[in-house]
Design a protein around this nucleic acid. Structure first.
Length: 351
DNA sequence: AAGTTGCACAACCGCTGCACG
DNA sequence: CCGTGCAGCGGTTGTGCAACT
């Protein structure tokens, strides 16, 4: 039984011989593939166009990277799979020289088993045990909520909740620098504000659920009411950059509040670049690819409370690409940015 | 040595979405 | 709007080989 596209043809199936490979390579390098259905006839191959296309894409293409996957590639696959699931073609776009078929085979033959062996569900990337929807966990001195769509995953080596920063780092790298800073500069970080789902000491990021987007905002405070913000919006279904802007932003910060119900919302920032206030909204443009990705999003509003402090942080990301609660503990607690659950406030991730 | 099993990877199958007439 | 052809995708199967019994 041949393919539906070539059922009327006498086509050969099975493994390709070196002679067939040579014919196909010679044809495509000299003429291009054009319409794949015409390739077999033009190249003198007893195959269907579909088979020729697959052979070229998955095996004969000159830009293919052969050989074993590196640990870095493995990490990228796991990270992107966490977002996209079994969208192998999308995942393969993050791995130059690798094909969707190759990624899929590697996943099924290696990564999948590895995750299972580590007690992780390869579909959800969550722990197989105690996988309860909307369960509330308590770790160290903070509490948070977790479900299958949580932004956070388990670092199996430390058994801690972590978030990979690869996506955010690579996104910020595409943005223009702050006007009065360099990569090693120190600047004030406008602290946590409500209705932003996630943050770390260097930047904040949030989700726009209806648009399948994530907004990353990094701000440099020049005074209490004017900050320079770098914002980028990405579509996490296609891993493409939708919009990036650098602008002066008027922010409203309630000095007396506990950052509850007031403050700066990156999805509705007031753009004052041209002296006119306008709401910043993402518009789809371009199809810029992301080097690496990760993330998964919550279904509910996230609310957390922190103390009202500006803090000074280094404009660097450090060596680790993972941002864990342990790090947050050490980095933020001395600044009074959040307090533990034994006191009034708690950091709560209502995912 | 022969048969069996498990694995990696190549290839196929069926489906979807899109363009076009 | 509908039918057709095509490219592309993800799931599945087939094949070859090495390890094991």
């Amino acid at each position: 039984m041949g393919h539906h596209c070539c059922s009327k043809q006498k086509v050969k199936r099975g493994l390709w011989s070196p002679e067939e490979d040579e014919k196909l390579i010679r044809h495509i390098t000299t003429h291009g593939h054009g319409c794949w259905s015409s390739v077999p006839k033009l190249a003198g191959l007893p195959r269907c166009g579909k088979s020729c296309r697959l052979r070229w894409i998955n095996y004969l293409r000159p830009d293919l990277r052969r050989g074993s996957f590196t640990e870095q590639e493995e990490g990228i696959i796991i990270d992107v799979h966490r977002i996209l699931g079994n969208r192998w073609a999308q995942i393969a776009k993050h791995l130059p020289g690798r094909t969707d078929n190759e990624v899929k085979n590697f996943w099924n033959s290696f990564i999948k088993k590895k995750l299972i062996a580590q007690g992780l569900d390869p579909n959800t990337h969550n722990l197989l045990k105690n996988k309860t929807k909307n369960s509330t966990k308590k770790t160290n001195n903070y509490t948070y909520h977790q479900d299958s769509s949580s932004l956070f995953t388990i670092d199996t080596s430390t058994n801690k909740e972590v978030i990979s920063m690869d996506l955010i780092k690579s996104t910020l790298a595409t943005l223009p620098p702050f006007p009065h800073s360099n990569n090693n500069s120190t600047y004030n970080y406008t602290p946590i504000v409500p209705n932003i789902e996630y943050q770390n000491p260097t930047f904040t990021w949030s989700e726009q659920r209806n648009q399948s987007t994530i907004t990353i905002s990094q701000s440099q405070t020049s005074d209490r009411n004017l900050i320079t913000a770098r914002n980028s919006m990405l579509d996490f279904t296609s891993c493409s950059l939708i919009e990036s802007t650098t602008s002066n932003v008027s922010s409203y910060i309630n000095e007396n509040s506990m950052w509850h119900g007031t403050g700066l919302e990156p999805t509705t920032l007031l753009n004052t670049v041209n002296g006119q206030e306008e709401e910043m909204q993402g518009k789809l443009k371009g199809d810029q690819q992301f080097p690496t990705t990760q993330t998964k999003f919550c279904d509910q509003e996230d609310v957390y409370k922190v103390n009202d402090h500006d803090q000074t942080v280094e404009n660097t990301f450090g060596d680790s690409s993972n941002f864990g609660f342990e790090f947050m503990d050490s980095a933020l607690a001395p600044c009074g940015l959040y307090t533990n659950v034994n006191s009034m406030d708690q950091l709560s991730w209502d995912c």
